[in-house]
């Protein structure tokens, strides 16, 4: 049943249907982290789970996982730097880590853009980081070996 890269046809079909949902769920958990349980870390790990599923199902050459695999370390660093930049911009309002962006109505989505942006930074950072960890531990040896014909 192992025709082509990745897993069997059934697994690839089911992952194709599920991938988008898992991805959007991760984004939603991260974006609404300031209102509901969840947040950037959890959302990032869910997004990383979607990418891991893509890599496991489609192999290392197709799918969103393979597309993002080349940029993981860059994204990881970009997320961390975005977090640091948001903290540094606090100096605009006086000191490090000040909640400096204007706030909206309480308990609505736009109630605090600062925390939303922080969550997005952590989402990028943790998503790329967890995915990079998976790639380092599993995929670099396993999938790349298989594609280059090594045993």
């Amino acid at each position: 049943m192992n025709d082509g890269p990745g897993m069997s046809l059934i697994v690839r079909m089911v992952s194709r249907w599920l991938l988008g949902f898992v991805f959007v769920y991760g984004l939603g958990v991260a974006l609404f982290g300031h209102l509901t349980p969840g947040g950037g870390f959890v959302g990032g790990v869910v997004v990383a789970c979607a990418l891991v599923m893509s890599i496991l199902a489609f192999g290392g050459k197709q799918g969103p996982g393979a597309f993002l695999a080349r940029a993981v370390t860059t994204l990881d660093a970009a997320g961390a730097l975005m977090f640091l930049a948001l903290a540094l911009f606090g100096y605009v309002a006086g000191c490090f880590f000040t909640n400096w962006i204007a706030r909206g109505e309480p308990a609505t989505f736009g109630s605090t853009w600062f925390v939303i942006l922080m969550n997005v930074a952590i989402l990028v950072k943790v998503g790329a980081g967890a995915f990079a960890g998976f790639l380092a531990i599993v995929a670099f040896g396993h999938i790349l070996d298989a594609e280059e014909g090594r045993p």
Partner: peptide, 8 residues
């Protein structure tokens, strides 16, 4: 902070 979620 404007966060309804105290943990965040």
């Amino acid at each position: 902070t404007g966060c309804a979620n105290a943990v965040m």
